[in-house]
Design a protein around this nucleic acid. Structure first.
Length: 423
RNA sequence: GGAGAGGUGGCCGAGUGGUCUAAGGCGGUCGCUUGCUAAGCGACUGCUCCGCCAAAAGCGGGGCCGUGGGUUCAAAUCCCACCCUCUCCGCCA
């Protein structure tokens, strides 16, 4: 969340950067509210000081058995006035809070200015796009023919955009998850976490998913809980209200969780297959870092995610998002897109972002430098490492042969209990 | 789901309406002292907002005893709601 302090000190940057995001609203109103609020606060504090003084005097006189009649009347009067001003103060405070919660994060200066995804920048490509001697099939055809994916039955029992993994399909999904987790914990130094899959609204505010994206999430009927749209939502809250020691940073976590998304407003998009589904598995990377290290850590996180595709030998490209395509909480984001020859598309398998102190402010996650009294907000980063369905798609579409069989990449065979081919 | 107990500073723990500016202890920091991987003595020890100051330091004030309301001149303390933890019973993977 943008702080009121930031509002006052970095007014110009704020206006400019939000313009880059095509985000506009009435700044004057915001600045006026802040000013008004400070005035009310001063008045309120002065009155409270007076109130405290009177209450103290009453206590003293009462003990001595002196007359307190006048002081009681005065105290009553001040309390009434305080109540009025406090009510106004709270209303204004709530109003400004609501506005501030809806302001997106400020893009980093290295982020290209652009209006939508067409202006994203491809920063690198890896691997060779295979030249098939036959027409490669899309994953839904492969999956259903091999009996590893099923869409029809899933639609009947859960609704459209759900799917069932069957037998070797379920095994492949599990193999990928374990491979990702092992790689990140053993070779990249992340600590594994299994968080709750449902969170209270406070958690969703902390990560920036509320208040803006309420309709994107599933929530429970009897309790006010939100199903994770991403493990990021849980991990961002892992050190809520804590002041961390400098030397524990950077903290690196990896989590496997299912993710639930309503995909409201995406009707008609990616309806076929499993490119866009309501429930999917994802292995998520998350870091808490010192501010001056967060951009280095961002590059490392992208590399950590890329490594998976390299080991699986799946061609991909890394894309730097422009300001218009940047997510709400992010200052800078790289997408990793894997090539899927069956659907003939680059599929976003990972999105890696530096949120700077945006989430840390909302969750009050801070740190103190050694030998310093000053407390600072940490920076938070999140990235998929990787999202399963699209990686699954890229894998089976890239590794199919002319008979529609899937050849398991070498690195994955141990995780597949030795199975080398799905036929 | 039923019954009960409880949530106080980094941690333990006292505190049942005004002297709480939260006792005491542990831990931590600094200093002094002492012949020996230690002890003793003393001082300091949270977070946050606003104001003054160019800024930092500092100073002044407000708020914070799970959260939010309420009663009162005055609330850690009384009342209400919610959240969380623990114990017992029931149910259950």
């Amino acid at each position: 969340m943008i702080s009121r302090e930031y509002l006052r000190e970095k007014k110009e940057i704020l206006i400019l950067s939000l313009k880059k995001r095509n985000y506009d609203f009435n700044f004057d109103h915001l600045f006026n509210l802040d000013k008004e609020l400070r005035e009310l606060k001063k008045r309120l504090d002065d009155l409270n000081a007076e109130k405290n003084e009177i209450a103290k005097k009453i206590g003293e006189k009462k003990r001595k058995g002196e007359n307190i009649e006048n002081l009681l009347i005065e105290g009553k009067k001040i309390s009434k006035e305080i109540e009025e001003i406090e009510t106004r103060y709270r209303e204004k405070e709530k109003e400004i809070e609501e506005i501030l919660l809806e302001i997106p994060n400020i893009p980093h200066e290295s982020v290209p200015v652009g209006k939508d995804s067409s202006e994203n920048v491809i920063v690198r490509e890896w691997g060779e796009i295979k030249d098939f001697a036959f027409e490669p099939k899309p994953h839904w055809e492969l999956g259903e023919k091999l009996g590893i994916l099923e869409f029809k039955k899933a639609g009947e029992i859960a609704g459209s955009r759900f799917l069932i993994y069957k037998e070797k399909g379920a095994l492949l999904e599990r193999a990928l998850i374990n491979f990702f987790l092992d790689l990140h914990t053993k070779e990249h130094g992340y600590k594994e976490i299994i968080p709750p899959f449902l969170l209270k609204p406070e958690g969703a505010y902390g990560s920036g998913h509320l208040p803006k994206f309420d309709i994107e999430m599933y929530k429970t009927k009897d309790e006010n809980l939100y199903l994770l749209p991403t493990a990021e939502m849980a991990l961002a809250n892992l050190h809520r209200d804590e002041i961390l020691e400098e030397d524990v940073l950077p903290l690196k976590y990896v989590s496997y969780t299912p993710c639930f998304r309503r995909e409201a407003g995406s009707y008609g998009k990616d309806v076929r297959g499993m490119i866009r589904v309501h429930q999917f598995n994802k292995v998520e990377l998350f870091k808490f870092t010192k501010p001056e290290e967060s951009y280095d850590e961002l590059e490392k996180m992208v590399n950590d995610a890329e490594k998976i595709l390299q080991l699986l030998n799946i061609p991909y490209r890394v894309v730097l998002l422009c300001t218009g395509d940047l997510g709400f909480a992010a200052s800078k984001t790289y997408d990793i897109e894997a090539w899927a020859p069956g659907v003939k598309r680059w599929l976003e398998v990972s999105s890696v972002s530096n949120c700077e102190d945006f989430q840390a402010r909302r969750t009050m996650t801070r740190f103190r430098r050694k030998g310093s009294k000053k407390i600072e907000f940490v920076h938070t980063l999140n990235g998929s490492g990787l999202a399963l369905p699209r990686t699954f798609i890229a894998l089976i579409e890239n590794y199919q042969d002319e008979k529609g069989r899937i050849h398991i990449p070498e690195r994955l065979i141990p995780y597949m209990n030795g199975i080398e081919i799905i036929e």
